[in-house]
Design a protein around this nucleic acid. Structure first.
Length: 585
RNA sequence: GCUCCAGUAGCUCAGCCGGAUAGAGCAACUGCCUUCUAAGCAGUCGGUCGCAGGUUCGAGUCCUGCCUGGGGCGCCA
């Protein structure tokens, strides 16, 4: 449909010039999808906007404009309505031809980007020696979906996990490891850090209460930074153990990501300081090396500094992030760098981006984007915690969702007198449970806070994963019932758009590429969710009103093709959200 | 004190460069299973878009001020 809008745009521009003269060549016809189906498929809002410029009534402008409009073969004759809207309705022949094209194309007629961009999506980013928790949920889910969408559109995407694998906290972790698990350093696989959270807490507690421990920890930090072999080994061990735990979660979520943690940038930090000094941005202030920011002020109204090197020579996260920006633009040759973090870091990124820009590390064609999201809240509206007030472990959260989906399914099977093998139940419960968690998150505008509710996300009706999975299953039900092989319906068979219901479904299907392109620009996956939900609803209406298997040929095959197109679009869309489909449920 | 984000139906949320009577879902109520899975469909009820100004032919959307909630604000990430 994108190409359709583009073509209609050209026709409108030509008509504007023909009707009102060449000076209107640059006017945007303001074509958008119709606000209401009764107004057709597309509407042009340009007439109202020209009232002043042309000194004419908007309706008169619209009337004159449509006299010059040639919209064949796309649209039927345009009509003018209300204060001057121009309403367009796509022709049946055109819709049928477009659907045919979509049906024959593996990619559902979604074109590859004309200018593929080297894109980095920086997401998830848990901390070594800590368990992944609910705070990592949104970044991981949203980041993965954005990466999937950009990849599908043909961009060259590098998914990076900027894990917290460096810094002062490793002093206490390594010291605790050495003292409490001495075998781990000498014996292979002696360490079973079953519960990283407990390990971290123990270390933290000793650090907070034992002064000698603190001293030894600080020494370990120095040892780590100076590359002491023994210390590095302990560090490596902690990282490896954490990776195993992370990977379990990523496998469950079906998320691919490449690790490039903070330690990766460690050797580059000193040159960041040098570069900033060279660029004459670096200032010594109260013992630290800082860059004073433009547009950020402290409580006294004076420019706020960004600390690059702490008193005593240490670096902090701003330094690492600056090193990462420089590396990504210079070594990775990234053209677009997308950071998926909570909204609380908005200031930090604005500051770091500013310094990077002033240092000259961001070429004109490169864009850095912070993609913020709101916090996950419990049903009481407060920060999401367990009943005992602890942070919710991601693993527990996901397992709970699967368990609940399983219980729902089981109860339903019993109620319907169905019997299914264990493998089936587990598979469906996993798809539904994980899908529900992901969909609930993605379907909301990411900038707002999000209230986590198992009951709502697993609800069988409404804008949920189960509803959409069910719509998909319904199509597969038709193919089973009629022993239809969707892959071999025959490329020569025609798709007919006769019934108004078929037409509505056709128009919805053809909007898929448009939606994906919008999401690729704005990075709001909830638009894709909204689209898939509406497509599911439209399909369910079609399913309700238009018999498929009982229809006479050639209508039967035509409707089967519409079903197949719907299923493929749903499946592709859900895949781009990171949600897997099932054939039966 | 400064700053960022949010405030839309009883609840959870959409609303894409400003465009037609502000849309869903849930909840409540009413219908529809001899017909492809009713995890569905059709319908009813429900809104001073936080408040007050302003810009505009037109404002939920843009601007200003205020109120409420959440986050951030020099050596944590």
């Amino acid at each position: 449909m994108n190409s359709t809008i583009a073509e209609l745009n050209k026709r409108f521009k030509a008509a504007l010039v023909a009707a009102f003269g060449a000076e209107l060549a640059d006017v945007d016809p303001m074509l958008v999808a119709s606000s209401n189906p009764k107004f057709g498929d597309v509407q042009a809002n340009v007439a109202m906007s020209l009232t002043k410029r042309l000194g004419l009534a908007p309706r008169a402008i619209a009337e004159q404009l449509i006299q010059q409009l040639d919209l064949s073969p796309y649209c039927e004759s345009p009509t003018v309505a209300g204060p001057g809207f121009i309403n367009l309705r796509l022709t049946r022949e055109y819709l049928e031809a477009q659907l045919q094209q979509m049906h024959q194309d593996e990619r559902l007629a979604v074109p590859l980007a004309k200018q593929p961009q080297r894109t980095i999506v920086d997401f998830s980013s848990p901390n070594i020696a800590k368990e992944m928790h609910v705070g990592h949920l949104r970044s991981t889910i949203i980041g993965d979906s954005i990466a999937r969408i950009l990849e599908f559109l043909g961009h060259d995407v590098l998914r990076l996990n900027h894990v917290g694998d460096w810094g002062t906290q490793f002093g206490m972790l390594i010291t605790h490891l050495r003292e409490s698990y001495p075998d781990a350093l000498t014996t292979a696989n002696a360490l079973a850090l079953g519960d990283l959270t407990t390990f971290y807490k123990q270390a933290k507690q000793r650090f907070d209460t034992d002064e000698d421990f603190q001293v030894r920890s600080r020494q370990e930090v120095v040892a780590l930074q100076s590359g002491n072999a023994d210390t590095l080994k302990a560090w490596q061990l902690l990282c490896d153990q954490s990776r195993l735990a992370f990977q379990e979660i990523y496998d469950l979520l079906d998320v691919r990501i490449q690790e490039r943690g903070e330690s990766f940038y460690n050797p580059l930090l000193s040159s960041v300081v040098e570069d900033l000094a060279q660029a004459e941005l670096l200032v010594e202030d109260q013992g630290a090396k800082v860059v004073f920011l433009e547009g950020f002020t402290n409580k006294e109204g004076k420019p706020l500094p960004l600390i690059i090197q702490k008193t005593g020579g240490g670096y902090n996260y701003a330094t690492t992030d600056l090193a990462a920006i420089r590396y990504r633009t210079q070594q990775d040759q990234a053209e677009r760098v997308i950071y998926i973090t909570d909204a609380g870091q908005a200031n930090h990124f604005a500051q770091v981006f500013q310094v990077a820009a002033r240092a000259g590390w961001i070429p004109a064609h490169v864009e850095l984007e912070h993609v913020p999201f709101g916090v996950v809240q419990g049903e009481d509206g407060k920060k999401f915690k367990t009943r005992s007030g602890e942070t919710v472990r991601l693993k527990d959260l996901l397992e709970e969702a699967i368990a609940r989906a399983y219980a729902d399914l089981d109860a339903r099977l019993i109620a319907e007198n169905r019997s299914e093998p264990e493998e089936f139940k587990t598979q469906v419960a996993t798809a539904v449970g994980i899908g529900a968690v992901k969909y609930a998150d993605l379907s909301q505008n990411r900038t707002s806070n999000y209230i986590f509710s198992y009951d709502k996300m697993l609800a069988l009706q409404g804008n949920t994963a189960p509803y959409m999975l069910y719509a998909y299953v319904r199509v597969q039900g038709i193919s089973r019932k009629g022993s239809i092989d969707f892959a071999n319906l025959g490329a020569d068979r025609a798709i007919l758009v006769q019934d108004e219901m078929e037409r509505t479904l056709a128009v919805a299907l053809l909007q898929f590429d448009e939606v994906l392109n919008t999401v690729a620009v704005d990075l709001y996956p909830n638009r894709l969710c909204q689209y898939l939900f509406e497509l599911s609803q439209t399909f369910n209406q079609f399913y309700d009103r238009c018999p498929v298997l009982q229809a006479e040929e050639p209508l039967r095959t035509s409707r089967l093709m519409l079903c197949d197109l719907t299923a493929r679009t749903l499946k592709q869309g859900l895949t781009l959200l990171g949600i897997s489909t099932v054939e039966r449920m």
